[in-house]
Design a protein around this nucleic acid. Sequence first.
RNA 1: GGAGCGGUAGUUAAGCUGGUUAUAACGCCGGCCUGUCACGUCGGAGGCCACGAGUUCAAGUCUCGUCCGCUCCGCCA
Length: 624
Amino acid sequence: MTEESTTPPTATAAEERSYDEYRVVEDLGGWRRSHTCSQLTAADIGSTVTLMGWVQFRRDHGGLIFIDLRDREGLTQVVFSPEDAPEAHERAHAIRVEYVVAIKGEVRHRPEGMTNPNMHTGEVEVYVKEWKLLNTSETPPFPIEDRTETSEMLRLKYRYLDLRRPRLAKNFILRNKAAQSVRRYLDSLGFLEIETPVLTKSTPEGARDFLVPSRLNQGTFYALPQSPQLFKQLLMVAGLDRYFQIVKCFRDEDLRADRQPEFTQIDIEMSFPDEEQIMEMAEGLVRTLFKETIDLELPAKFPRMTYKTAMDEYGVDKPDVRFGLKLMDVKDIFAGGGFKVFAKAPCLKALRVPGGLELSRKEIDDLTDFVKIYGAQGLAWIKVKEDGEWQSPIVKFFSDDEKKTLAERLGMTTGDIVFFQAAPDDVANAALGNLRLKMGERFGLIEEKAFAPVWVTDFPLLEYNPEEKRWVAKHHPFTSPQPGQMDQIATNPGGALARAYDLVLNGNEIGGGSIRIHTPAMQKAMFKALGISDEEAEEKFGFLIEALKFGAPPHGGMAFGLDRVVMLLTGSKSIRDVIAFPKTQKATCLMTDAPNTVSKKQLRELGIQLREKTAEVSAKKVEG
RNA sequence: GGAGCGGUAGUUAAGCUGGUUAUAACGCCGGCCUGUCACGUCGGAGGCCACGAGUUCAAGUCUCGUCCGCUCCGCCA
């Protein structure tokens, strides 16, 4: 080291200096970490430790220099003192945010009154004796800290920096805990973790498949699994009895805050179960998971609700039961009455919101726009004023009898607002069901930290798909009907019930499953009911029907959406925050720039040629 | 496929009814500073206002289109 470089710059120095000469990256040179950045406490005082990590903040007093050293576990304050270690201190002026450093020094108690109770390691600090610069860093495009909001775009482009932020890092520490907890629990119950193929067969029904062209068999395609559904059933046929897997699933559908094209399921299947046994196992799993990750005791038994009740009272099949505000059917009150809009409505439902009197005209207008999203034509309402008078644009059309019955049925009282939807069932339910959630938020009825699980049972087996003009499986075509329900399919397809169940948590579907069909006859009958011809059934699902012929045991199971569960456990608003490298709403990866074009050679090997317009778009992408 | 919100220094935002040199905070660079912890303080640098057309004497601002991000509907269990 030259004379000049060890002399601190003085105020009289004419030209600006640079610390680049100190920014020489060194090898580890045999150094090893002795502690993480969240470990040191008063018990370690006096010991010599080695820490490695990233520089979170730097506070250079000219004399003393403090840095907060960060790793995934936490922060430790490190002190460079010109008296204790002049050479180490002088070089430390060059340290910048996000540099990677290794420091060796002595743990000391902080001086009286200088401890930091906000910091896990706030009682102590490490006085540096020597240190190594392991790497420098450019100034990060956004601050690596929780309190600064940054655009999703930048966060995704520099995901590895985003993941350094403590809040996100914590999510993945918890996610790991959750996964390990699930494995321990299921293993203890005799479930075997078995892997299933990722390159598999495209099956109709359900979501759009992601396809993978086959080079060895040109003109044919694998599909990525929407779930390992058929494989896990075949594992039951194989007599493996109990299976589970924490597994990626792929669905090529549009994205949402809680939907990614690839996501992770806790996939479970067991032999010889009834619904009760599966629900018991699932409740145990969720209870254990919550206990071991966030130390929360969920009730021993989760409440249950039929699909019909959920739709009638909550308007959705995934009710948030943390608060009341149930929908009420009032169709009968106005049937045949003078107010045509209500009298003729296929479905007429009301939502009474106590305290809703305070909603302004503007707010009601906004709510009207809100329900239009779900296909509603408008939003009728009645306010019950302090003097008991009803204020409403429609009440003048009501008869006295109608008013009286309505008030009694809904329990209308001063300060209320009542909303109405006169519409087809699905529209009325969607509009009021979502309005209910909005009102729950608006009036602070939702206890944010509460977790309210609920089973939704007795799902319909089939639902009508107007686009395809046929009945399709609501759950999937391998779901067993409830006893006797198969007979209904011919006469009243929509009324047949399935042995299916969903687990709903705070208005989020976190899991679902069913007892499966295990005889070839029933499976064939089901395909027939779905309008799938024998030939098609044979071509697409022949291997399943074949397998069912060889002593398939009764079996059933369920799958949990791990991403959604972890999202709820961590209080995240999107599953992107619990997926290390998520995709944008257009299903692209801003970090790797996937999906991308491939060379002509690659396409030729696969026997694939782009259509003219597609090729143009592709060429443009290559240029850009 | 559709609806809504957004894109302005490295970052987060402000920028009114179109009008002089586009603001601020944080960050960055440098000076000073031995008890800070989102250190303080003094000074400095930093802009294709997403992109492309148009209207206008004049566009960050108005119009149209395109691209990108988010939320939602459809889609998806």
